[in-house]
Design a protein around this nucleic acid. Structure first.
Length: 640
RNA sequence: GCUCGCAUAGCUCAGAGGUAGAGCACUUCAUUGGUAAUGAAGAGGUCUCCGGUUCAACUCCGGAUGUGAGCACCA
């Protein structure tokens, strides 16, 4: 006589053991149709799961996040079934759920083509219309291995063998297809209303580049057609915001074959870069950093001493000159230690905060480059804090405060914090790791923000915090970081004289707020779809005449604005004002000023924004005030 | 680096085994027009590069380079 408590708090009694599907049916026919799975006392189960005792139960539909996951996971099975019907030689491997969809990896004699994808999708629809029941079963490991060996599925056999423990394994069968799976799954193949295969690409077996390459087919699945449509629109929107596209359209920068992975900044892109750099420069000055500049080429031996040559030799550019080997600097830290090492340092000098807009070159693998997001030549807003072990927590807390302010100024309010702790391969005593991990944890906790733990993901020299921001498309972009390093100061002989006269090795905190200018600007472009906040806009104002008669007036207004430090230009071309408005709107210039005879007479300008809002005519002074306020707001929203 | 795709005018893209087209941009002329495209004319391409097949290659084949998606990598 189970009593089932539903999410709304109501409860229902049943005569005897009853399946989740039956419970759904007893609540309503609509719910029964929509039911994809159940959650019994917090655990996800199939709708065929039989409830025998009192429990809390929720019927899971495509409206639940969990339901969508079940749907997508089942859709991966559906796809695998379709592939095996079309290509009996293809072997199945794994097919997990990913954000917004799923994929399945197949081993096949040749890569799938886009035409194959269409065929697979058609076959999937066929299987949907067959409405095959999806049935769970349990097999012992030995039986499972024998079964899949019999089918010639060697990858599955591998997977089964690699699952630890020796309890029985669950399998899901739908018609002619069976797959190893924890489940749960949808009750029958008729449940799929909206799915689409999106792409095919290679992926290594077990994610290891030394293994053979499989065919990974990506797909997406949703509760209904409307959601699918919305998702596809979101993809389109993301494509429109692609910083590579906008960068070209707005002439911010370009790349060319002669310098792969290195940016040619155009005047407008460089203007943005400069604004950001000046902003950071001022910020760091105001917050106890001293700016330095270190060489581009440094003898290879320094990189050997720092340990980088060992690990990253292949990713370092080098130059030979006078039979000496130099590395083009791939990072700034060893150079900063050299600056620290000049002269004898006292504990009174600490914390010593050195900052550099450090230009670095790394030979990134060709396939990893991506517009501004991953380049071979980039500039970090790098900084290193040399301090005694005891100040780690304070320094980290101060840094985080600084970083949050910067992100807000750029218009990012949603920040994600992650702590990466000791990896297997590491230097330094456990005691040291304990201390610094604790320091980072305490700094995180005192920020009051939620944070995530990534065990084992720290650098070999110390734990780190990574700061990611969420852009307006909900994508997570890693930018800032602070890392504790107990290794490099020692390797490179950094020391200071402590209060008691003894020589001590300082701890070094590596930190960056933006990460790299290139990447950060890429993120900004996508976040704002090119329409930068006024303080960052490469061109803040353009003033245009209606006829040649107002040319002189426009020039004088332009000069007035430029003298006040605004980025203003005059568009005096012999074109209709509508044409000019259109061009500058497309160019995302925040303010467009029009001057005709009326404005000349009254010493005013007619103001229009790139959003198409007409602010009417106003005296030039009034506009200057308006503009100043817009600039001063930075990227902050009203609330912040 | 790996798998698959792509590479045509400054940009966005069409295009057939018989040495190329559109729109925008550019130049010139006319036009002086009040808030998202004034009209006309002109100029512009060793069709990424190197090989091969062919009477003939921008087109087919191979390679290189760059680039796109995904994987791997990311101090």
């Amino acid at each position: 006589m189970p009593t089932v408590v539903l999410p709304d708090g109501s409860s229902r009694d049943y005569e005897g053991a009853v399946s989740v599907a039956d419970i759904a049916a007893s609540i309503g026919a609509g719910l029964a149709r929509a039911a994809l799975a159940g959650r019994v006392d917090g655990e996800l189960v199939d709708t065929s799961f039989v409830v025998e005792n009192d429990c809390e139960l929720a019927i899971i539909t495509a409206r639940d996040t969990d339901g969508l996951e079940v749907l997508r996971h089942s859709c991966a099975h559906l796809m695998a079934q379709a592939v095996q019907r079309l290509f009996p030689e293809a072997q199945v491997t794994v097919g997990p759920v990913v954000e917004d969809g799923f994929f399945y990896d197949f081993a096949y004699e040749r890569p799938f083509t886009p035409e194959d994808l269409e065929k697979i999708e058609a076959k999937m629809r066929e299987i949907v219309s067959e409405n095959l029941p999806v049935e769970r079963s349990v097999m012992s490991r030995d039986d499972a291995i024998a079964t899949f060996e019999g089918m010639g599925e060697k990858y599955k056999v591998d997977i089964i063998k690699s699952i630890p423990g020796d309890e029985a394994l669950s399998f899901y069968r739908q018609g002619d297809f069976i797959d190893l799976c924890r489940g749960p799954h949808v009750p029958e193949t008729g449940k799929f209303k909206a799915f689409k295969l999106t792409s095919v690409a290679g992926a290594y077996w077990r994610g290891d580049a030394s293994n053979e390459m499989l065919q990974r087919v990506h797909g997406t699945a949703w509760g209904d057609k409307k959601d699918l449509e919305q998702y596809l629109q979101r993809l389109e929107e993301a494509e429109k915001r692609d910083h590579r596209k906008i960068g070209k359209k707005l002439s911010l920068f370009h790349f060319q074959e002669e310098a792969p992975g290195m940016v040619f900044w155009h005047p407008k892109g460089w203007a943005v870069y400069q604004v950001i750099q000046h902003y950071m420069q001022k910020l760091q000055q105001d917050n106890g950093y001293q700016e330095i500049r270190t060489p581009q080429l440094v003898d290879y031996s320094l990189w050997e001493r720092s340990g980088h040559a060992d690990k990253f030799a292949e990713q370092m550019f080098s130059v030979e000159s006078d039979s000496r080997l130099y590395a083009i600097k791939p990072m700034n830290c060893p150079c900063h230690v050299q600056v620290f090492n000049q002269g004898l340092r006292s504990y009174r000098d600490l914390p010593l905060r050195l900052a550099e807009f450090g230009s670095c070159h790394r030979y990134e693998p060709s396939g990893s480059m991506h517009g501004l997001m991953r380049v071979r030549s980039f500039t970090q807003d790098d900084g290193h804090i040399f301090c005694p072990e005891s100040s780690i927590q304070d320094e980290v807390a101060i840094f985080m405060e600084l970083l949050f302010g910067v992100y807000k100024d750029f218009g990012f309010d949603d920040i994600i914090l992650r702590l990466s702790t000791r990896p297997e391969m590491r230097v330094g005593s456990d005691e040291l790791w304990d201390k610094s991990e604790l320091a980072l944890k305490q700094a995180l906790n005192s920020s009051g923000l939620p944070w995530e733990l990534l065990p084992g993901e720290g650098a070999f020299y110390g734990p780190k915090i990574e700061f990611s921001l969420k852009d307006c498309m909900g994508r997570i972009q890693q930018c800032g970081t602070i890392q504790v390093d107990f290794s490099m100061p020692e390797r490179l002989g950094a020391q200071y004289v402590a209060e008691d006269g003894s020589r001590q090795t300082p701890v070094m905190l590596h930190r960056a707020i933006l990460g790299s200018f290139e990447r950060f600007i890429g993120v900004l472009i996508e976040h704002y779809a090119g329409a930068m906040p006024v303080w960052l806009a490469p061109e803040q104002v353009v003033i245009m005449n209606i006829t040649d008669k107002q040319a002189e007036y426009c020039e004088s207004v332009q000069k007035t604005l430029a003298n006040k430090g605004f980025r203003a230009s005059a568009d005096l071309r012999n074109e209709k004002v509508g044409f000019k408005i259109r061009e500058h709107t497309i160019a995302k210039t925040p303010f467009m000023l029009v001057a005709g005879d009326r404005e000349v007479e009254t010493g005013s300008v007619s103001v229009r924004t790139r959003e198409g809002v007409d602010l009417g005519s106003m005296p030039v002074d009034a506009f200057v005030e308006h503009l100043s306020a817009a600039v001063a707001r930075l990227g902050r929203t009203e609330a912040n």
